[in-house]
Design a protein around this nucleic acid. Structure first.
Lengths: 175, 175
DNA sequence: TAACCAGATGATAATTATTACCATCTAGGA
DNA sequence: TCCTAGATGGTAATAATTATCATCTGGTTA
């Protein structure tokens, strides 16, 4: 299977392009274009580290020392909501455990966060043949499929048809 | 690609088997076999919910009302270390963000938790063709490859050869 | 251009999950 | 049966995130 580390040399051009489009995309998503948001997306686009909120905040503060950590947290979530960023750690809220040791993967409902096991023997076979990846020594892997479960899908469909038309972005997942 | 939800009917037999082997496996892993550990693995094996520590604790307390939540947290981590359980949320400690919106996946070092992007166009193509999975509506997916980065792999190798031979289980990741 | 206001921010308190600590207990070997 | 390394319970401490709220400002409208 074709499988390779992303070339870091592509980053500057990609970041520049995304930054150029950022203001327009904010407006499209119904967001004000603030200096904080621009500073935060800039740091994120320039980083290869998949950083945490505190690291982004520290980097932003080099230019804008007044920025609040709460703003950074809020902004990152907001950017994810309008699709300008992606949270790598979908289920980071709390640790979840699995007693099933047989090779398997997971489907996760993005709303209620229920998880079910899935089997993909073909994928397991392909990955079992890989022991290194660039400078990394491969130990294992796990595919996480993001989905809506039956119940949450039904709710979303009902809201879409019978809804009162209020801003969709406001809907928070019911933890 | 073969890809299906795991059949829940298999669980009872699997759980019984694992439970029967549990004491022996604890000893093999250098762990005492305590009533708490047995109660915790039993709850975990009987659950399809990929539960959190507090849910496991609540279930355990139905039989052993005295069990501490701290013990449940510790035990779950310990079970993962000897390979009797698996943490679904490898990177749950804190949220990590990514500004790269092009389809890609991640390699994660299990020691230092550094993350690098990888591309697997073939996998993306396969998954893009899937819009439902049992009762789930598929939205996206993310493969997480667990690995050792160059630096951490080198450290581990040095410890293995020149080490003082103390219990490997004790080594905690340096956050 | 000026005035307005919904939404954004900063500062800080509150919450939540997890880990640290330590006195006590116990599994399992001598 | 005795002993001790390791396990546990109870609780304090920590760390990440979210909530709250007074203030501010981007962007629309008059």
């Amino acid at each position: 299977m074709e499988l390779q580390l992303v070339n870091e040399r592509r980053r500057p051009a990609y970041a520049a392009q995304r930054l150029a489009e950022f203001a327009e995309r904010c407006r499209a998503g119904g967001l004000a274009v603030t200096p904080q948001r621009i500073a935060i997306i800039k740091v994120l686009l320039d980083s290869a580290e998949h950083p945490r909120a505190d690291a982004i905040c520290a980097a932003v503060r080099k230019q804008h020392p007044h920025v609040s950590l709460a703003t950074v947290h809020r902004t990152l979530e907001t950017l994810c909501e309008i699709g300008e960023a992606r949270k790598v750690t979908m289920l980071h809220d709390s640790a979840r455990y699995d007693g099933n040791l047989t090779p398997h993967h997971h489907v996760v409902c993005i709303k209620c966060r229920c998880i079910r096991d899935i089997e993909i023997p073909q994928l397991d076979r392909i990955l079992a043949g890989r022991s290194e990846l660039g400078e990394f020594t491969v130990l294992g892997s796990s595919l996480e499929i993001h989905a809506l479960c039956e119940r949450c899908g039904a709710k979303a469909a009902k809201r879409a048809t019978g809804g009162v038309g209020r801003s969709q972005r406001k809907q928070k997942s019911s933890k």
